[in-house]
Computed example of a mutant assay.
Amino acid sequence: MAVLHTTLGPLAEQDCGLVLPHEHLVVDFRTPDEQPADALDVEEVVATMAPALADAGAAGVTVLVECTPPGLGRRADVLAAVSRAAGVPVVFATGVYREPWVPGWVYDASDTDLEEFMTRELTGGVDGTGVPAGFIKVSAGDDGLRPVEERVLRAAARAAVRTGALVGSHTADGRVVLQQIAVAAAEGLPPGRFLSIHTQLTADAGLRQAVVDAGAWIEYDHVGQGDDAAALRLVLDSLEAGHEDRLLVSHDAGWYDPALPGGGPRRPFTTLTGTFLPALREAGVPQQTVDVLTRRNPFRAFAR
């Protein structure tokens, strides 16, 4: 039986309602060598972020996928503490982000070491929490895959094949995404287990279509970022193009930034439920399709 691996235990499809597939609770954009070991005050992060997560739960969110990978200040113990305080299940990411946020140890690791690292986090738990990672997060710049990023992607694909996990990539240019899909497929990963994150940044509709035609997932994760009318139009256009069974929608919201006083400014996790989904329905999208986008598709993508 397929399940989502979360901080509050494995969840079957019948246990899940609306899932937010791309959010953050904590992100540190300083490079790994600049991130102090004591960057986070756990009590402060919980006091700051648990109410925002609880608000999402009260609005109908049943699972939040936390997309911060190693290299961007991921702290599984802190994420688990926020989740427990809010009573909302959270999915962890394993993987490695792009340069210059690649941790130093990755450069010295063998390809097998990288694969085993991700596999361990997907099966045995992350950083002593006992909570397995729910998916693999990678990235690449728009100028193409750099050598270390390609090594990480190949290792991610192999770990995903072993575990059934999804590989999601923060990559804005659809041409690079198509290259990533091809590289991952060469390692045995079915394109249906690859997610193009931030697909709204791929301005060329033909490239977005090519990613869908390849069999991968696409994600528009900019709800609540300033122009929801444009975001709504993009979702409607994608539905018209036949992307219903390949599309995810989220905010890319949050988050606590330990480099900023008080964690910096934050955006809520409730715009989707509060205004965006009602706008979709008002535009004529049936509730059944809304449920596919927000319930069935995220579970199918992230469950294993």
Results as ranks from 00 to 15, higher is better:
A2L: 15
V63D: 03
T31C: 11
F92A: 12
G124V: 15
L8Y: 03
G224K: 07
T271K: 13
G17M: 09
S196K: 03
Y256W: 10
D237W: 09
I136E: 02
V292H: 10
L189V: 06
L236G: 07
A230T: 01
T271F: 10
I181Q: 00
D227S: 09
T202Y: 05
V152E: 04
L189R: 04
V45G: 08
A85S: 08
F135H: 00
V78A: 09
A303T: 04
H243A: 07
A47V: 08
P298A: 02
V183A: 07
L189Y: 03
G9A: 08
A47L: 15
E34M: 03
E23N: 04
G188I: 13
R120G: 01
V212F: 07
Q287H: 14
A231G: 06
P147Q: 08
R266S: 05
Q179T: 06
L293G: 09
A301C: 08
A186G: 15
R98T: 13
G168W: 00
R75H: 13
I181M: 03
E43G: 14
G274K: 10
P21W: 02
T294L: 08
E44Q: 12
A216T: 07
P278N: 15
A47E: 11
T68N: 10
G174L: 04
L4F: 14
D173K: 14
V176G: 00
P69M: 05
A259M: 07
R233F: 13
A231V: 06
P10H: 03
V183H: 05
S169E: 09
A214S: 06
P278E: 12
R267L: 03
L20S: 04
E13M: 12
A76Q: 01
